[in-house]
Every structure is written in C-alpha cells, then in structure tokens.
Design a binder for these strands. Structure first.
Lengths: 201, 201, 201, 201
DNA sequence: GATGAATGAGTTTTCATTCAT
DNA sequence: AATGAATGAAAACTCATTCAT
C-alpha cells in the first residue's frame, strides 16, 4: 500500500490547507500542521520527504481532483465553445466552493520559492493540456479561428481565469464568482469589440 | 531635497533589482544590496525605513515609470482599440527590454509576504485605472461592446498580459515577447471564435 | 512535569550565572550561555521564552532559595532582635558563600533595562515581606520602638544590607563579609549614637 | 578657557539629563541628546571624548553641585548629630526638587556598564568622605559611639539614603520624600530598638 | 509505526563615532 | 567652530529536520 492511500497522508494534507489558509504561508510551520493533523512533528516525515513535499503533494492532490472533475464535466459535450464554457464555470465553481483551497492556491502557495513554483507549474501543465485540447478541437471543428496561436491563447485563457479568481479571493469573496462565468466565456469567445456581424443582422 | 531625489536612493533601488534578479527574493540580503550599491549596510537605513521599504519603493519607482511611459504612448491616439494595442505593445516592450526587472516583478516580488503584496497591489491600481480609462473611452465611442463589465474586462486584460509575460520569463526569455502584441490585441478584441461577421461580408 | 523541574532548566540557569559573573551582563550572549550549559542555542528557547526570561527566572530561582533558607533559619527563634540578627548573618553568609551569584545580583543584573528590573523588584517583594514580618513581631513584642514607620525601616534595613554587600563585591571580596553581621545588627538596633542608657549604668 | 565653562558644555549635559529621564538610559542615543541640545551630532564630540564621557561628566557636574550644597548647609553646625540631620534633609530635598535628576541618578545611570559605574563610584567617594567626616567629628565629640566601624557605618548611612530615594523614585514620587528626614535621622542615630535609656529617664 | 526533544544555521537593524566640508 | 552623511560591527531568535526511545 503506497503512502498516498494511507489515511494520515490525506489527513496531513487537509491539515496543511487549513493551517496555510488560516495562518498564511510563512506562518504555516511544520509543527502547526502536525498539531492540526493530530500527529507528532516527526510523523510528518514518515509520509513526506520534507516540508516542500507537503506543499507539492497538496497541490498535486487538489489539482488532480480539480482536473478530474473538469474533465468529467466537459466529457460528453460536443461543442468546443460549450466545453470552454463548462471549463470556465467548473473552474470558478470549484474554487468558489472551497474558500480555504482558493486562498491557498491563489495567494499563499505563490509565496513559495522559485523551485517549488517550478514544480507547481509541472502539475499545472496537465490542466493547460485540457485547455489545449478544447482549443484544438474547436479549431478542427471550425468553431475557433484557424489562426489561433495555441500556446498564446491558452496562456490568455488561463491568465484570465487566474486573475479573476485571485481578485475575488483578495476581495475576500465579496461577490458571486460563478455568476461571472457567462461574461467570461463571452469575452474569451468574442473579445471586447462590438460584435460587427450582429449589426448587420 | 527629499530622499527620493538623492542619488543614493535610486542607486540602492537599482542595486536591489540586480541582486534580486540574480539571487532570488529570499537570497537578497540587505548586505548584498548594500555591497552591490557600493554603500555600507547602515547607509541603506538612511534612505529606507526597513528592508520591506526598499521593495515597496522599488515597485513604486518602477511601476511609476512604467505607467508614465504607457500613458505617454497612448496619449495622442484617438481610437480605443489602438490605445489598447499600444498599451499591450508598450507593456510587453518595456518588460522585454529589461529582463532583470521582468524577473523581479513577475517572479521574485510575488514571493513576498501578504502584507507587502497588499502594498504592491495599491501601486498596481494606478495601472488598472489606465486600462479602465481605455475601456470606458472605447465604450463611449462605440468601439467596445456597451455591455462590458469594466472590472471583469480589466481583470481579464491584465490577467492575460501578466500570464503571458510570466510564461515568457519562466521560459527564460526564449522567444520574442513583443511580437506577440498583435495576436494578443486581436484576441482581446475578438476572442477566439471564428469571426462570423467577416465570413458573411 | 513542568519545565521548572526538568534538569536542563536548572542547568541553563547555572550556566547563565557563571557566564554573567565571568563576562558581565552585556557580554552574556545567549550563545555563550548555551555553550556553557552544554546545549544548542535553540534548546534555550525550549525552556525560556526569551533572553529576559532567563534572567528573570534566574533571579526567581535564586531569590526563592535565598528566602527559603532565611525563613528556615529564623523560624524557631523567639526574639525579634535575634531573628533580625539571623537574617543579617544569613543574608551575608549566603552571598559570601557564592561569589558568582553575588556578582550577578549585586552588580550585573542591575544593568538590565527598567522593564526587567521592575520584574526583579516583584520577586524582591517577598524578601521585603520577611523583613516586615520581623519588624511587626518586634513591635508587638515590645522589642522594637512602637513608632517605627515599617516601610521606611524596611527600606533602611534592606538598603544597608544591599550597600554593604555591593561594596564588598566591588572591593573584590577582599574582607570577611560575614564577620560584619554583629556590627550591622548592632547599628540597625541601636544606631550610631552613644548608648545613653549605658552611660547611666 | 576650558571646555567645562563654555555654554555648550552645560547645554549638552542638561540635554542629556532630560533625554535620559524621558527616554531611559538605553534609549538615550547621542543623536537624541544632540537634537535636545540644539547642536549637531558631531558637535558633541568637540566637548566630550565619547558617550561615556557625557555620562561621567553629567555625574561629576551634578554630584559636584550636590556635595557643594550639602557642605554649605552643614558647615556652620556644631553638633555632629545635627550635621547628619542636615545632610539627610539636604540629600532628600535636592533630589525631591529635581525629579529628572533623581530618575537619572537613581535608576537610569545604574544601567550603565561596570566600567562607567566604577568611575561613578570615584565621584561618589567625595560624598562618602563628607559622611566620614561627620562620623569622625561625632566620635571625637562623644556624640557617636567610639566603637563605630567608620567604613561600615558610612556604607549603612549611604545605603539607607540611597534605598529610600530609589524606592521613592520607583513609586513615581507618590509621597513626600523630605518629610521622611526626621525619621531617617532618628533611625540612624538610635536604630529600631526600644530606647531603653529613655525608659529609665 | 509514532514520538517530540534537541539541533544550529542564518539575517536585519541600531547607533557611537568619524571626517570632509 | 560646526555640521551631518556615512560607516560597519554585533546578537537574538526561528524552525525544518533528525533520531533515540
């Protein structure tokens, strides 16, 4: 049985989310996480190589669930545009539903050192590939412009979503994040210019 | 004469940019910055209240120049769309032209604690207001959709630019950042959908 | 088991006495105390909140023993005058027997900041209460003048003893401190005037 | 003209008294004293060798005045006992009349390092000699017991006075210090025992 | 497997003093 | 005589990680 499936593994990760959300990245000492998890400091090191490993594992676990859920949601959908809408809505819903996780991923984990963020980016790649797939599908189906620069478009979609969620977290969740999905989708599909075609309709 | 205008003030800030870019945020000790600036450790504290104050001042100075230059570029332009293009191109140009500054603002300063980042965000607001102004102008002139949610659109534009520059920095400046301006502008104006109107024209 | 009873607690306090006596208050760095105690610097902070806490605890422990011993010595004695003599002799004996402690309490700890000295004074209060008790007993028994101002008399007795010990420490323990007890007691009982009564004897 | 007589010399010493009384010994930086004195930091060093020299000079000047005044008060007095009373009363009066000076000499200057306190003790010697002289006079005149140990008695008198004033300063001058003179004198003359002789009178 | 006491490296900041003007 | 900008040495404390039990 691998460590990943033992109860204390998840227990420690959940404790880390809570401790980081409540105390901030720099005040999330290993001993605090251990206390929150109800284990001894040393026990942490039976499940994780070091502190950084807790954070990477946290991100992997949470991002894994995140991607799985999004893929499940968009699976049966035909239209690329609708797939994109569902990705946006699920992205916003999942983070709106878990304030602590949102704080940890949008604010706190970004304070980690460059090394850790490189590893986080590797985990993120899987999510970016989901976006890429939607884009390629849309281009093949003629829904999206054939001239899209995939990498650039993916960066813009991800950057857009990320900034929106971060702003929402920094505003202390004052407004309804999910309600923005429709507008976000419309912007990503049509930009901010006046829809010329419609004026001729 | 205020400290801000004394030569050592700027000298220390330039030293901080170099030291942070080369060593990373967490390895940028005050003594290293002092050595780079060619002053004694204690001299730093004649110009800055504490280490955090160096970083905030750095961001204020650089962001101030950044905004001033962008405002100068877009000033005489009539069309909001062209203003937006110029903002994008200048944003990318300025950071492409100063690799060290790009590393510091896109990667290193984000590792700072929440307190510092809150202060950084206050400085950022002035830039976001420039974007807002372009959006409002464009809406009034009929160039941009009248239904734009200003806050949301501004977040998407800034999030897009920020993610593009960050990706470019993390790729270690492997490609031409400024060359992306045209595509970015097109995406922000038209989104990723097939330009329906044009097919009917 | 509370920290106070763990062996390292006392070990660190004894180390602090030695280091302060040998190096002086301002040269008694935490790392020096740790080295003398045979523990790591960090271990100090498992037993003491901060450096000041070491010094307060040192004073509390030593003053606690001091008072306990004096109370034990004077307990069975009937006469208030003899109680006072025993207090004087024990006070001088205990400090004469521990040169290092005498240096620390008479000279070095007085260099501490006001905050620490306020806390030291709180500990001292318990000793002053022992003096008060002797004075009240003596007044009730008719041994001491009924017109004594308790607070003032206590201050004079303590001030006398303190100055004598301090002078002895500053003289670098050149003479026999305990031998002074008899004269000190006589002075405190009779003052410096000619014993009028005796002239009539 | 020696420095001692130049106006800035006294000006700096007065500034030091004020700054130390208001801020405490450890918060009395040279630059603060300079500002209070209305001179530049560097000017201090035209009048004093170093910071310690300010403090020693302060003590010398103030103690000099102190001794001069006390000597003037006791000069014409015949009786040693009355001389002693006048010394006590003047000692208490002078410090009661200058709260700032009392704080500085009783509390703040004692935080200085051992080296400085050794020099302070040298200045104190002159005062102790005044006490010694009274004692010797009294012994010669038959007012004081012929068996007095001069050094010890002087220590007890000084220790008594010092402790009384220190207690008063620490109580934040809550009671009338000078009013205690009579009782203090009576105690120093007769001790705390019941005046046996008088009962026979 | 679990514990938790012990370790020790590493950095910001203050402030007395100097000296060119 | 007076200035005040510049200097640079020095120390408390935290916390990730280990390892004997």
């Amino acid at each position: 049985m691998v460590k990943r499936n033992k109860p204390k593994y998840k227990q420690i990760i959940e404790a880390a989310v809570i401790v980081i959300a409540e105390n901030g990245y720099h005040q999330a000492q290993v001993s605090k996480i251990a206390r929150q998890a109800g284990v001894a400091d040393g026990t942490i090191y039976l499940y994780f190589k070091n502190k950084e490993d807790i954070l990477i594992s946290l991100f992997q676990e949470k991002m894994g669930e995140f991607i799985t859920k999004i893929e499940a949601e968009i699976e049966g959908i035909e239209s690329a545009s609708e797939k994109l809408f569902m990705l946006i809505e699920t992205h916003l819903s999942l983070l709106a539903a878990d304030h602590q996780l949102a704080i940890v991923t949008q604010l706190e984990l970004r304070q980690s050192n460059k090394e850790l963020r490189v590893k986080i980016n590797e985990v993120l790649k899987k999510y970016l590939e989901v976006i890429d797939l939607i884009l390629r599908t849309g281009m093949e189906k003629g829904e999206f412009s054939k001239e899209l620069d995939i990498r650039l478009t993916r960066q813009m979609i991800f950057g857009t979503l990320d900034e929106i969620v971060t702003s929402w977290v920094m505003s202390e969740h004052k407004y309804d994040l999910v309600a923005l999905a429709k507008n976000v989708h419309h912007f990503l599909m049509n930009g901010c210019c006046v829809p010329v075609s419609k004026t001729y309709q």
